[in-house]
Design a protein around this nucleic acid. Sequence first.
DNA 1: GATGAATGAGCCTTCATTCAT
DNA 2: TATGAATGAAGGCTCATTCAT
Lengths: 194, 194, 194, 194
Amino acid sequence: MATKEKVSKEVILKAAEKVFSKYGFHEAKIYKIAELAGVSVGTIYRFFKSKEELYSEVLKKKLSELQKRVEKNIKNKSPDRALKAYVSTVVDFFEEEEEFFTIFMREMGSLSILDEERFNLSQWYQSYVKKLSKVVERGVKRGVFENLDPLAVILAVSGAMKNLIYARTKGILKSSPQEIKETLYEIFFKGILK
Amino acid sequence: MATKEKVSKEVILKAAEKVFSKYGFHEAKIYKIAELAGVSVGTIYRFFKSKEELYSEVLKKKLSELQKRVEKNIKNKSPDRALKAYVSTVVDFFEEEEEFFTIFMREMGSLSILDEERFNLSQWYQSYVKKLSKVVERGVKRGVFENLDPLAVILAVSGAMKNLIYARTKGILKSSPQEIKETLYEIFFKGILK
Amino acid sequence: MATKEKVSKEVILKAAEKVFSKYGFHEAKIYKIAELAGVSVGTIYRFFKSKEELYSEVLKKKLSELQKRVEKNIKNKSPDRALKAYVSTVVDFFEEEEEFFTIFMREMGSLSILDEERFNLSQWYQSYVKKLSKVVERGVKRGVFENLDPLAVILAVSGAMKNLIYARTKGILKSSPQEIKETLYEIFFKGILK
Amino acid sequence: MATKEKVSKEVILKAAEKVFSKYGFHEAKIYKIAELAGVSVGTIYRFFKSKEELYSEVLKKKLSELQKRVEKNIKNKSPDRALKAYVSTVVDFFEEEEEFFTIFMREMGSLSILDEERFNLSQWYQSYVKKLSKVVERGVKRGVFENLDPLAVILAVSGAMKNLIYARTKGILKSSPQEIKETLYEIFFKGILK
DNA sequence: GATGAATGAGCCTTCATTCAT
DNA sequence: TATGAATGAAGGCTCATTCAT
């Protein structure tokens, strides 16, 4: 029964996201995920051939969601408005998906170079970031943006944003998502020098 | 003999750094570290009471090194020059210590909330970042910097920088360390908008 | 299935008893117990959370069996007949449970003071012996027994009995269980002096 | 230097006795013994070829001491007085040598059948007890003692005594050594029945 | 299909013993 | 001769994965 199957898979992915985000890949236990999902360990292995694959599926699912949202929201916008939209979309996404943000940060740090089996986030990130840099490139060409390396710009924006969200997650920074966005606009558009 | 002991400990820390950076905490095997260090497994346990402690020592050692360097280089400088010095110091440090950068990124991502025993990087980062934000605060007070949340500024600079170094490490970005520094100065001081 | 589980647990306890009695706690290897029980190492850990717990369970199980038997057999008997019943029950019990006798002796000798986790045989023995001394106490009060310290009497009987069983186990003494019982009755009731 | 050597060996044996009695064979660590003895680990291995041998030497030394004392004190005594002397000597010995008593009890329980290397206490005990039974045998022949199995009698006395000392060591029994002796004389000579 | 008990490879850690100094 | 740092074998325990029911 395709629908029932899909429901189970969905429930498992949701549970996996929670457990992976809380414990990280290695300390997350399959039986904990099964427990939380309300299924047996065996059932998880009907849908995912290994813990690695399950992990990878969680990543893939969320990342494509994020990517789709970003692409949708920057489409047909002028470079500056597109950049703002990018920031806004990502901040909102991770505000909603705080659990996934933890996994995302962890995995970004882990690089996953060696592990062929695990989802290659690094490669995904590379192509994602290159696509985004086109926006900046256009801005530079049109003379809206300073003559900077578009890739470096997008990496800087993205890194700054991740760090602010991270700090907010950890309670280091008290700002609201809206304030984070605005701070980012200010800093990146006008610079910090008076 | 104190010197000989120190040498062994140093060699082990060096090997541990390599192995942890390559495989991450969980996939790093003590016997691999021993092998690389050219000592026996037992010898590692003469210097470090557990794998966790060894990991923590690697972190502590490098982080205090980084912190000392940063503090030394920003001392007695005007806010804008101090910020530049901060960027320059960190970029150079991680250029030299590429292996440690991997561990650093991974651990930043992992947050280390749960594991009381492991070195609490999150706490270290919080206090480190708060100290640095004083530099920005002074800049704001003196009217050199725009009226922005100093903590947010330092988090943005730090995040952008980490991401650029990361991208360089991964081969996504081709810029030299010097170029990375300059790009960061440009972006953060003048903004990207023309 | 509850029954099957119980069977496995029973089989493991039986195997553990054998291995512990043969090698003692420290030299008994978990994999040896698993082998003898015909299960995997992992299965042992499904039923017992550690080697110590397994050991403690073996002790507890047998000791409560012994205690129950003793209590049942001395109930509603006159002090002298109760004392005989005590001797008879214990001799018979250890005749059947020779393997456990080895563990019992070893553990009695080990005292288990330090190890809070391991079953505190010393405490069990204290309360067990105090209960039994009530029998002697009654005998003294009724004027059936000489005016002796009841606790000392029961400790003497118990010690003598253990030593005779031990010597029989080791082949030092050739007497049958029945002869051991009778010798004990003679010695303790009439004394050895003509 | 023979004298110096002897002193070192003596100091090590003393330390070993303490540590073995406190922790038992397996949990006693060689480095702890070395520490307590104020020598290096290597020095211990100059005098004893293994932990087992050291343990065995502790046993042998004390047991031959005990044996000599017992033999000396029962010599040329009538059977009943010899038996009293035996009890008195052993109670006094273990009162002085409480630490060794712990080792003795533990080892008695452990039987040491399998381990050819370790001192075979069982065999020693067998010959020791057989020698003592001659005293009872003489008593029986002379008609001083009842017609009982001499070996069984000595095992009973010895077992009762060990148990009373044990109970005193553990705080179960409050009697003084003198009271323990007297209780044993009473019980074994006159019986407990009125 | 679903279950979850059973498996067993794998790894951290200990500590008796050795041996270069 | 004395030292104590270095060794490395050995074993308790975990948990991803399998498979009989």
